[in-house]
Every structure is written in structure tokens, then in C-alpha cells.
């Protein structure tokens, strides 16, 4: 087993496989201690929430310098809007990372895969490190990979639903099939579900609601960090497959060696 185990996005290396978000916190002041407790090195922030002129209310002021900012295109209804938001984010000094969120369903916040693919194709050409948030779909994942996406971010279940990895069978196919990292995003409500995603072989998870809305976001961040590490270690040790019965030794073909 290789000793270094880094998450690579674009050309950047990360030690932590837990990505976090800035939404839904009771106070932005909880973000720095949450990042420290969780070890998360990448945090996503909605460009529409950034108010550069707002002083302490400016969310960016609460994100430590060493943390990689992953601006997202929340609020975009089309590929064109997502592209415009990404460009504005880069001009605003938010870096080259962009998480594409194109959502046309306001109730369940389901991503629009077609528009997301279009935005990915354009933004990769413009030099962005593109992380598209998608409804799990293997064919689409191949196309995103071809387009030059830095990862794919399939949802486990609807954003904020805390229902866990309901899309597990499809995510497993994606993990098994594509070369770029697979980051399970949305729906992870408990550390055990984060561990499950990592055991499945996901390269990372993104957790926001479960941390931000818990009674103690800092401790919740620490709990998710441990779960992600445990799940990753379990995956790397290639734990034995499950079986519901003991395996008798070659009951059908043993005679050949007899």
C-alpha cells in the first residue's frame, strides 16, 4: 500500500478528504474553529452570499488564508449563469476552483446535469479547476471526465436531507469506472454515512448542513473528520468482502484435486 495518500484536485494536493461549506451557520465566527477541528482544507462558499463591502458580515473574512476557497455557483439556473458567476468569483480573488451548481428545481435542489456539463466544458477551457455537482449518472461522469473536470460530485441524497447515500449503487459504478476523484456531496447527515462513502471508495465527501446546523458545529466537524479518516483507512486496507455464510472449501470442484 502506498504511504502517501493525498487527494489531488487539479494539480493541488490535499491531506484532508473532508470538504466543508459556509452555509447555514448560526454565526460566521464558528467557521474558523470548525475548520480547525475538522481539518478540512477546502470550504465552499456561494458567490451570491459574498458581500465585499460588508465588513465583518463579509463571509470571506472568516475563512483562514491557508484554507482553499471553493466558490460555488449557487443560484445559477443555466450554464450561462454558472459561467458568469465563475468568472466573477475569479475576478473577486476567489481563485481558480469552482464548484458548479446549476439548479432548476427549488424544492429538492436537484442539479441540472445537462447545463452542468455545458458549464464544465466552458470553464475548463478558461482554466478553472472545475468540480461539478451532479445527479449520479455514469455516462455523464465519463463526459465530465472527458471535458476535463477535476472531479465529479454526485449527490448522496437531496441537499440538506441528511438521508445518507441513497444513490449508493450508481455512485459505486462511478467510483469503479472513472479516473478522476469522486466526491460525494449532499445528503450526508451523520459521520457514519461519511464513513460509508469513504469505505465505498469515494475520494472525499463534502458536508455542510449536518455540521452547520448541529448544536455544536465544532465538535461535529471533528466527528466527521474522524469518520472520513476511518472510512478511508478501511477502504485502503481492502477489508474482506462480506459473506452471509462461511465458505466451505471447494464443495463442487474439490474432487479434481483429490
Amino acid at each position: 500500500m502506498e504511504t502517501s495518500d493525498k487527494l489531488i484536485l487539479g494539480k493541488r494536493e490535499f491531506s484532508s478528504r473532508l470538504l466543508t461549506g459556509t452555509g447555514k451557520f448560526a454565526s460566521n465566527e464558528l467557521i474558523p474553529p470548525m475548520l480547525e477541528a475538522s481539518g478540512s482544507e477546502i470550504i465552499t462558499v456561494a458567490l451570491r452570499r459574498i458581500d465585499q463591502g460588508a465588513g465583518d458580515d463579509n463571509i470571506l473574512k472568516h475563512i483562514p488564508k491557508q484554507t482553499t476557497l471553493l466558490p460555488n455557483t449557487s443560484g445559477a439556473r443555466t450554464a450561462e449563469e454558472a459561467v458568469r458567476i465563475a468568472r466573477i468569483a475569479r475576478q473577486a480573488g476567489c481563485g481558480d476552483f469552482i464548484k458548479i451548481e446549476v439548479i432548476t428545481d427549488m424544492r429538492y435542489l436537484m442539479p441540472d446535469n445537462q447545463e452542468t456539463l455545458k458549464a464544465t466544458q466552458i470553464l475548463v477551457q478558461e482554466g478553472f479547476i472545475v468540480l461539478p455537482y451532479v445527479m449520479p449518472d455514469l455516462t455523464l461522469s465519463y463526459r465530465l471526465q472527458d471535458a476535463g473536470a477535476a472531479a465529479v460530485m454526485p449527490l448522496g441524497s437531496p441537499i440538506g436531507s441528511n438521508q445518507g447515500i441513497l444513490t449508493r449503487p450508481i455512485i459505486e459504478l462511478i467510483i469503479d469506472s472513472i479516473e478522476i476523484p469522486v466526491i460525494v456531496d449532499a445528503g450526508i447527515g451523520k459521520p457514519s454515512q461519511a464513513a460509508e462513502a469513504m469505505e465505498m471508495g469515494a475520494d472525499a465527501v463534502l458536508v455542510n448542513t449536518a455540521i452547520a446546523t448541529s448544536e455544536d458545529p465544532v465538535t461535529a466537524g471533528a466527528a466527521f473528520s474522524m469518520a472520513v479518516k476511518a472510512g478511508r483507512m478501511a477502504y485502503r486496507t481492502e477489508m474482506g468482502p462480506e459473506s452471509i455464510q462461511a465458505n466451505a472449501s471447494s464443495p463442487l470442484t474439490g474432487f479434481l484435486r483429490g
Binding site: 458580515d57 443560484g75 458568469r84
Partner: peptide, 16 residues
């Protein structure tokens, strides 16, 4: 709002 344990949000949208 802060005393109640909530974050006041002034900006949650931008016309782009």
C-alpha cells in the same frame, strides 16, 4: 437575531 443564536443574512442574492 444574534441573541437568538441565528446569523442575520443581509445578502443572499446577486444579479449577475
Amino acid at each position: 437575531i444574534r441573541n437568538n443564536g441565528y446569523q442575520p443574512v443581509f445578502k443572499d442574492w446577486d444579479r449577475i
